[in-house]
């Protein structure tokens, strides 16, 4: 089962490359990655999934937190959390595909977005595992696919918040 790490980092050029660079530099694998600014435009929030072992995950969390641009790190699996991703798929046989989805993948939220040139773009929202098994089943029907990668958030009172600012006075 993949682990999910959520982090807040400075919304600055170079910050993302430090996070990604850490993974290649230390030989960790990333399965998916999603990043965008938050309600605070100086911060970006990043969610990544990785299939590394628990020991490695602990190292990853520490190494990430060590980066100056990373403000806070959270292991989403450490508390109750939800995880979702969105996929856009383009198909030419809309009717068949929709019926397959409705029959076996009813937990996915499904919307039809576009029909240009008799190619249909469908939007799917749901759990990563379910989207992945659907894509395997639909393989022959798919013209193209794009996915956001998983997004995650802990439930209830536990949140990924920034600590108080550290003030250094000389």
């Amino acid at each position: 089962m993949a682990s999910q790490i959520s982090l807040l980092m400075e919304n600055q050029p170079g910050a993302l490359s430090r996070v990604i660079g850490l993974f290649s530099q230390r030989g960790y694998n990333i399965d998916s990655l999603s990043v965008a600014p938050t309600q605070d435009p100086t911060l970006s929030r990043l969610t990544m999934t990785t299939s590394e072992s628990e020991e490695i995950i602990q190292q990853i969390l520490k190494q990430l937190f060590k980066l100056i641009d990373v403000v806070m790190v959270q292991d989403l699996k450490a508390s109750e959390s939800l995880s979702l991703e969105m996929a856009l798929i383009k198909v030419s046989n809309k009717a068949e595909v929709i019926s397959k989805i409705e029959k076996n993948y009813s937990s996915l939220e499904l919307n039809e977005l576009d029909n240009t040139d008799e190619k249909t773009i469908l939007r799917l929202i749901g759990e990563t595992d379910i989207i992945e098994s659907l894509l395997v089943e639909l393989k022959a029907d798919l013209v193209e696919v794009t996915r956001t990668g998983a997004l995650g958030m802990t439930l209830g009172n536990i949140s990924l918040e920034t600590e108080e600012e550290t003030k250094v006075i000389y």
Partner: peptide
């Protein structure tokens, strides 16, 4: 600067 403000820089 006489002081610095840095987010989450624990020492």
């Amino acid at each position: 600067p006489k002081e610095l403000v840095m987010r989450s820089f624990p020492i």
